[in-house]
Every structure is written in structure tokens, then in C-alpha cells.
């Protein structure tokens, strides 16, 4: 019973991942209204660390690395590691063994969390080198 439930959840997650990728490839979040806005930006008007990430992935799926970088450099940096981690998780659930991963020391994980928050703060600053980190600012959007 448990195994079946687990497999269903895995299948649902995989289906959601594939559907999300296809939808993100077909529709540009910058122009299409089918994607929900970032709740943080909607409520506060501030950019969160992830603002622009869906638009960035859309650009990446079309091979536009520079446009993706301008929309959310954090996403471009993190995405390869997140993809590797997700693939590892899926393989671990399927065959009991994930992909080789280094053991991250707790200090490194805390530093990563701090870096994400810092990125969220800095991209809201109205000072010149930092304002380029706002979604699309490097493209002059």
C-alpha cells in the first residue's frame, strides 16, 4: 500500500515537473498572464530572491543564457545544482541510490541561505551597481 502511494506521489511530481517545463517553454511569463505573480512582490512591491526566476527559466529553455542571467542570476547559478539534486532524489526513490553528492557542511548551507537573503535585499537597493540585479535591469527593461 505504502509503495503504491509513494509511486503515485513520485509520478505526480514527475508529471508536474514535465508539464511545468513544457508550459514554461511555450509561454513567456513576462507577457503571458497564466503564471501567478510572486506573492512577495505582489504584497510588498519588493523583489524577492526568486523574482524573475520563471522568466529566466523560460529564456534558458530557449537557449538565451544572457537574458536569463539578466532576469535572475541566482536562478542561473543554482539551477544546475537543483536539477542534479532533483535527479538524485528521483533515482534514490526509484532504485534506492542517488547520484554522487558531496556532503555539505552545515556552515556552507547556512552561508547559502544567507547569500539568498542577501541577494534579495541587494537587488532592491536603488544604488547603481546593485539596481542591475533587479529582474531584467541588465537588459534595460
Amino acid at each position: 500500500m505504502l509503495e503504491i502511494g509513494k509511486n503515485r506521489l513520485l509520478t505526480a511530481m514527475f508529471a508536474a515537473f514535465v508539464a511545468g517545463t513544457v508550459i514554461l517553454r511555450l509561454f513567456d511569463p513576462a507577457t503571458s498572464g497564466i503564471f501567478p505573480p510572486c506573492p512577495v512582490h505582489y504584497l510588498t512591491g519588493w523583489y524577492c530572491p526568486g523574482c524573475g526566476s520563471l522568466r529566466a527559466i523560460h529564456q534558458l529553455l530557449h537557449g538565451h543564457l544572457w537574458a536569463a542571467w539578466a532576469l535572475n542570476p541566482l536562478t542561473v547559478v543554482l539551477l544546475p545544482f537543483l536539477t542534479w539534486g532533483l535527479a538524485s532524489f528521483a533515482l534514490f526513490e526509484i532504485r534506492g541510490q542517488g547520484l554522487p553528492k558531496p556532503f555539505l557542511r552545515a556552515e556552507w548551507i547556512r552561508a547559502l541561505g544567507a547569500a539568498i537573503i542577501l541577494f534579495g535585499i541587494v537587488r532592491n537597493l536603488p544604488l547603481h551597481p546593485f539596481d542591475l540585479l533587479a529582474p531584467g535591469a541588465m537588459l534595460g527593461l
Binding site: 506573492p39 512577495v40 524577492c48 530572491p49 526568486g50 526566476s53 520563471l54 541566482l74 536562478t75 543554482l78 537543483l82 556532503f103 555539505l104 557542511r105 552545515a106 556552515e107 548551507i109 547556512r110 547559502l112 541561505g113 539568498i116 537573503i117 534579495g120
Partner: peptide, 22 residues
Amino acid sequence: LSTVFCCLPTGIPAIIYAAQVN
């Protein structure tokens, strides 16, 4: 993924606990 793609306020505790695990 939670922090960046969804909900910053609930993603941060998840990162803190992930660090605590290690």
C-alpha cells in the same frame, strides 16, 4: 526550491533545518 520559487518565509526555516541536519 521552496525559498526561490514559492514562499520565502516558509522556505528559510526549511534551509535552516537542512543545515541543522548536517
